[in-house]
Simulated scan of single mutants.
Amino acid sequence: MSPGDEHDYRGMDQGGRTDDPYSTLGGTRQTRTRLPDGDTATPHTRRPARSSRSLVTVIGIVVLLIAAIAFANRGGGNSDDEASGNGKKPGAAGPAPTGATGTKPVQGKNGTIASGFAHDEQGAQSAAANYAVALVSADILKPDRRAGIVRQIFIAERAGELETKFNQAYGQEFLDKVGLDQNGNAAEGMTYVSRTAPVGTKVTAYSASSATVDVWCTGVFGTAGVSSTNPVSSDWFTMTLQLQWTSEDWKVDSFAQKEGPAPVNTDRTASNADEIAKAVEEYGGFTYAR
């Protein structure tokens, strides 16, 4: 059924008065009134008042049409694609756009990171979105938290190697540059911010054992504080994660990051350091889903 379908109600009463300009679904309601001094050749007419029964009938038909259109719009998807999590319309070319599927994205958590993702494209996208958030979090800069994050996210064969690389990349030189001590903590009166929000995901390759997923992200990064030399600012970037299906879950084999796509900056007034620090403390993160 298409929302644009129209019905010709004039044919419902073949023997009726369809030539009457005031005919309705309930039949003719025309009334002719002759004035006392009127000309019989040109009688005066008026549009009749519709009865309450006729009005109820018309309203009922309108409600049914609206319900039918809403049902047609809701039921336009392909059941096979919906069941598989692809979300593609029949005949559509290219990857499906990111959108809510209504399927539960994850079965549990491993510490603060989601785990137990579905063994399909939707599960791979959900895993990639959640792992992108963890890889650019403030906790990854803390040596005592870093090892646990790496071992939760990466496949076992790569965890040790990548932990060493992360330790080198986030050494004391880097921590000094962003105003953190050797434990990854900001100075007293300061709050370090590194909060990422996935905007969308896209599968560029998929098989039962591996997947490549692009995660388009935005986020806020920097140190909030009156004397901060690294003020909190926003950024846009895309992270590409190579995933493998192992131990009944999606894990990262490798990842890369590039800038953008970034929108035009607005002229919105920036919040002060205290407001940013308070927001980071009061607003928690999410478990992200395809």
Score class of each variant (00 low, 15 high):
A186E: 04
A128P: 08
V56P: 00
A277N: 09
V136M: 10
T287Q: 11
A224L: 01
Q182Y: 03
T204M: 02
D8Q: 06
D19Y: 07
G27I: 05
D176P: 03
S207Y: 03
G148W: 04
G94N: 10
G123H: 14
T31L: 13
G38P: 06
T287R: 04
V232G: 01
Q257A: 03
E82N: 13
T45F: 07
N86M: 04
K109F: 15
K202N: 11
T229W: 01
G285L: 05
V215H: 01
Q172L: 11
D176T: 05
V215D: 00
M12Y: 13
G75P: 00
V58Q: 14
R32N: 09
S79R: 14
T240F: 04
Q122E: 15
G285D: 07
I153V: 15
S54C: 07
K88S: 14
A197M: 07
E259G: 06
Y206G: 01
G111H: 10
R195A: 06
A224N: 01
A114Q: 13
T31P: 00
T223K: 04
S209D: 13
T57V: 06
T204N: 08
A67G: 13
V226C: 02
T24H: 08
N183V: 02
T33C: 04
F166M: 13
F221Y: 11
R146G: 05
D144W: 07
P95T: 09
D13S: 13
D235L: 10
S51W: 09
Y22C: 09
K142M: 12
M12T: 13
N78C: 06
S194Y: 02
L35E: 10
A156H: 11
G108R: 15
S23R: 15
Y283W: 01
D20A: 11
A187V: 01
T164A: 15
T218I: 00
D214C: 00
G171K: 04
Y22H: 11
R268V: 12
G123W: 13
A93P: 00
